[in-house]
Nucleic acid binder design. Structure first.
Length: 556
RNA sequence: UGGCCUAUGGUGUAACUGGCAACACGUCUGGUUUUGGUCCAGAAGAGUCUAGGUUCGAUCCCUAGUAGGCCAACCA
């Protein structure tokens, strides 16, 4: 699998065989700074940056900032930090807006060659003349303006003498082309928004199609990779390139791959923005968001995201990847890296009757069985401890390996205990369980008893020596497997009302050393990361993902 | 009354561009284990959208269907 190439690599290898100079290979990642990056972008980022790595080629980060209306410096900053966080650095940071003058000059050239004209109709009129995919369009009444008139008008547009919507510059191609994009596409419009970089220097802004290929050409990008929906744009991309390309230079090649779709989530910036603006989530980095920053805050690592998109592959067919693959990837990575910690979320009190009142004993517990170099830590063992309520049953089902009356169980890293007496409260719920412990069964003591096998091993925490923490657990934001098919206004129908739940828990003392961004495996529970918003007295942990659980599956 | 793209187990991706379909996730067994985690061993699961054709032989080439996707923003 590692040695099999995806179709993009095959194309590149063929180009190389056909004489393309390997030193001329150059890639780019071209986001528009109008939102935060999401998992789908991770695929594009990994594809392009890994290609650059594989072929020792250059790669630029280019902001496609041609529509100031929704663009913002904060998005530029977030995008840069997200790409860096993934572990990538670019050769050059570029902006399409750096090329506004060049693009403008080239437009004048198009006008002079009778390949562009100023249209003074309304956008509705233009749309109506465009025809439909099945019917040809009609020529604009302004299509035959002279080069002089077009030049004059276009200059007026540039100088701010035209209102938005009054005139646009259009490429003169073919109003009856079967490809709608070739029916005299608009290449410039007047906008009165302030641009995050050029501010008010420009009031005419080039459209995507006119900008993208020419920017690729300016940067001498050899392979311009984009998603499938841009396939119809390729003909236009090539037409625009034809107008300016110099035979001695690299002619960029647009190729399209299928975007990554994740089940139960959306990857549309517009829809993600809707969630943010309507406070359905707590900002772009809400741990339920499929944004890179949300995934990071949720506890996903760069390595896990990279291995995920690699496992998903690169091809040309529509796909929906199951969440379970993403979860597998984080668990795989976190299992190797995270220290284990004992945390009890829904406690039940265990009193060890054959222990002295006030007994305190330090135990040595390993931090990570997968990584001996992670060392050990100490845990306090006391007369009363807390275990998870679901780890005790006074009426155990078959194959219940946990604590039940008359049964033995090991407290992880400590002793084997036996349940003798169940104390109920007035409502008839279990309040406390009295146990006895086997003093010779101490973990790691080397005694016969310490090696005794019992069916169950439970995590626990001293009932007196522990700290309080807050846990935030997340579930899918959408109940529907493919929420992408719904318009934002209908999200309320498919939103999961229980996508976040908050609770408190008791953690072992060692946890007080945790710092923001630290990830742990809460033994037998899952992986958790300390949130940035944690107060010093009551740390908040976001649950990244559960451990695999064959028992729960069986119980269902 | 159009153009373009795609079609392989539940999901995703492969198959040296013609030689009896592989890998990963998921599912199920069993073993190991002081996490019902990890790890290890194994199993089930598609005969490659359909119908023709070329060929000794087709997932791969051709033809015609069928299904799905994209294209009518002064968005990218």
């Amino acid at each position: 699998m590692n040695d099999s190439r995806n179709f993009i690599e095959i194309i590149i290898d063929q180009d190389l065989q056909n004489g393309l100079d390997p030193d001329k290979l150059c890639f780019r990642f071209p986001p528009e700074p109008n939102g935060f990056l999401h998992v789908g972008h991770v695929k594009a980022i990994v594809l392009n940056f890994e290609l650059a790595k594989k072929y020792s080629a250059k790669i630029n980060l280019r902001f496609d900032d041609t529509n100031p209306e929704n663009e913002d410096q904060k998005y530029i900053d977030a995008i840069k930090s997200d790409v860096n966080w993934l572990g990538y650095s670019w050769d050059e940071e570029r902006y399409a807006s750096d090329y506004f003058q060049q693009l403008y000059d080239w437009s004048l050239k198009l006008i002079n060659e009778d390949k562009a004209y100023v249209d003074s109709q309304t956008s509705e009129e233009i749309a109506n003349q465009k025809g439909t995919p099945k019917e040809p369009g009609k020529n604009s009444p302004f299509r035959n303006r002279t080069a002089e008139e077009n030049t004059m008008l276009f200059k007026q547009m540039k100088e701010g003498k035209a209102e938005p919507g009054q005139h646009v510059l259009r490429a003169k191609i073919d109003m009856s082309s079967p490809n709608m994009l070739m029916r005299d596409p608009v290449i410039y419009r007047v906008l009165n928004a302030s641009h995050p970089r050029t501010k008010s220097d420009w009031v005419v802004f080039p459209m995507y199609d006119w900008t993208h290929g020419e920017s690729d050409y300016i940067e001498q990008i050899s392979h311009s990779l984009c998603t499938l929906e841009f396939k119809p744009h390729r003909e236009l991309y090539d037409w625009f390139l034809d107008q300016v390309v110099d035979k001695d230079k690299i002619r960029p090649k647009q190729r399209e791959f299928a975007r990554l779709n994740l089940s139960h989530t959306i990857t549309s910036k517009r829809k993600l923005l809707y969630l943010v603006e309507n406070n359905i989530v707590d900002g772009w980095d809400d741990p339920r968001m499929p944004t890179i920053s949300g995934l990071r805050r949720r506890g996903y690592t760069p390595e896990s995201l990279k291995s995920f998109v690699r496992a998903a592959g690169v091809a040309k067919r529509e796909n929906v990847i199951e969440m379970s693959l993403l979860e597998f990837c984080v668990r795989e990575d976190l299992n190797k890296k995270c220290n284990r910690m004992m945390v009890v979320q829904n406690p039940i009190k265990i009193t060890i009757t054959n222990l002295e009142e006030g007994h305190e004993e330090m135990l040595i517990v390993e931090n990570n069985p997968e990584d001996p170099s992670a060392g050990n830590r100490e845990m306090v063992f006391t007369k009363t401890v807390l275990i998870e309520r679901e780890d005790f049953s006074d009426n155990p089902p078959k194959k219940f390996f946990r604590l039940s009356p008359g049964n033995e169980v090991r407290l992880k890293g400590a002793y084997i205990i036996k349940a003798n007496k169940v104390i109920y409260n007035k409502e008839g719920f279990v309040d406390e369980v009295e146990c006895t412990y086997d003093p010779k069964s101490k973990s790691g003591s080397g005694s016969e008893e310490s090696k005794r096998k019992v069916k169950g091993t439970l995590h626990w925490v001293s009932s007196t020596k522990n700290i309080h923490i807050t846990i935030r657990e997340y579930d899918r934001l959408f109940e529907h497997p493919s929420p992408g098919q719904f318009p934002p206004e209908e999200f309320y129908k498919i939103l999961n009302p229980n996508s976040m739940s908050v609770s408190t828990a008791r953690a072992e003392l060692e946890m007080s050393k945790a710092k923001t961004g630290d990830s742990f495996q809460f033994q037998r529970k899952g992986y958790y990361i300390m949130d940035k918003a944690s107060p010093s007295q009551n740390m908040i942990f976001n649950k990244t993902v559960s451990l695999r659980d064959n028992w729960k599956k069986q119980a269902k």
